[in-house]
Design a binder for these strands. Structure first.
Lengths: 217, 217
DNA sequence: CTGCATTTTGACCAACTAGTCAAGTTTTTG
DNA sequence: CAAAAACTTGACTAGTTGGTCAAAATGCAG
């Protein structure tokens, strides 16, 4: 949807200039910061323009509507955010695959908390901009992985567990550290910033979930 | 903070009339609905007044500022929301106590999803209105329960687990079903509404977490 | 270096929104 | 039942915000 700047011709090519590339990036970075902190309604175009170091009309030259910036950001983010799930290998060792997945998600939660918050905010408010994406891309992917997990359970490689709830639990737990960062900090204080905190978190989460789904006799 | 309507005298008593009681309730109910769906900035006073069936100036007669409604709601909600954690019995059986806690949280997530979303939204945006509450009330409570859990671990009644991360995991997982309801529905479809879904959820969550922290030899 | 396309911006507007106010209506109370 | 208190509202204001526009500045191909 996000139409770029005006072009010489009205045909397909959509060539982007050097300046366009730079400025669109500046805008998107600034917008991610703002949207993830204040939400869509709580963010003004002026704020984004300021942060991006340009005038409001100039920003609107690249993204004619505020909504365009928001949707572009979500689209950009979602693919990347879901990649690790797609990477779960049906032929790998179940516990090992899930360990890798959880570890990666915790890393992402630490390195891109704004992306997590942007997404959380959108879903929290009913996902008006991405409900299509959820049903057309997310659901099939999860369904696919659920089949694999269910097979693993059938083969006795995992304790009997509902695959969907397991995936929700992994999402909820890992993203909690990004989305509820303020609360985590209020409770754990200075520990949060310290080096090694992520490893400690990963250790605790992995220990509970993996032991929770390890096959028992 | 939330000052009630004008009173006869300017002394302490703060007596509330029948009408005040009814109307404040109408306003707060309408506001919870709106704030939890659209967030603070996304909700207008007119919206709340409409939903509550009164004029905007009349609403402002009861809550002179939009902020007042919001803060009152958060305060009202938080105490109730935290009660189950406070109820964990240091002398009870660890697994049983945690089972009860998790079950209760999942029930609340289903019966009061708006409250969960209101809170999630506030924390997601940096908890500007309740950071005091977090450090002055939530932290001490969690610290207190962490000591208990740590003792349980020491006594060999639970597998070695960091109490804070365990509590975060319980919060994250249970509240996920309220906060990310749209996503859960997009993926699990019609199952979500069906009777027994909550029991199925509770079963899955309990199974993973409790087995994850059950003492191992 | 010249002419055209691209980029940038100050000034502006219309819609929206939190909050005010004075004048009315209803409820309570002595 | 009359006066006082409590409640209700239409009309309004001031500030904010998304978006427009025409004109100026800059970049770039030949």
């Amino acid at each position: 949807m996000a139409k770029a700047a005006k072009q010489k011709t009205n045909s397909a090519p959509e060539k982007t200039t050097r300046i366009q590339e730079i400025n669109r990036r500046l805008i998107l970075d600034a917008a991610l910061d703002a949207f993830s902190t204040y939400g869509f309604r709580g963010t003004t175009i002026d704020q984004i323009a300021d942060k991006a170091g340009m005038s409001k009309p100039n920003l609107l030259y690249y993204f004619p509507r505020k909504q365009n910036i928001y949707v572009t950001l979500l689209e950009e983010t979602l693919a990347e955010w879901l990649a690790p799930l797609a990477d779960i290998d049906p032929e790998g060792d179940p516990i090992e695959q899930l360990r890798k997945y959880i570890t990666l998600k915790i890393k992402m939660s630490e390195s891109h908390p704004e992306a997590s918050r942007l997404f959380a905010n959108e879903v929290l408010h009913g996902a008006p901009a991405i409900s299509d994406f959820l049903s057309k891309h997310l659901k099939p992917l999860v369904d696919e992985k659920a089949v694999i997990i269910r097979r693993w359970v059938g083969e006795g490689k995992l304790a009997p567990v509902d695959p969907y709830h397991l995936i929700f639990m992994i999402w909820a737990t890992t993203q909690h550290y990004a989305d509820f960062d303020v609360q985590v900090r209020a409770i754990m204080g200075s520990q949060v910033g310290r080096p090694g905190f992520r490893e400690q978190t990963a250790q605790a989460v992995l220990s509970i979930i993996l032991n929770g789904i390890r096959p028992r006799d």
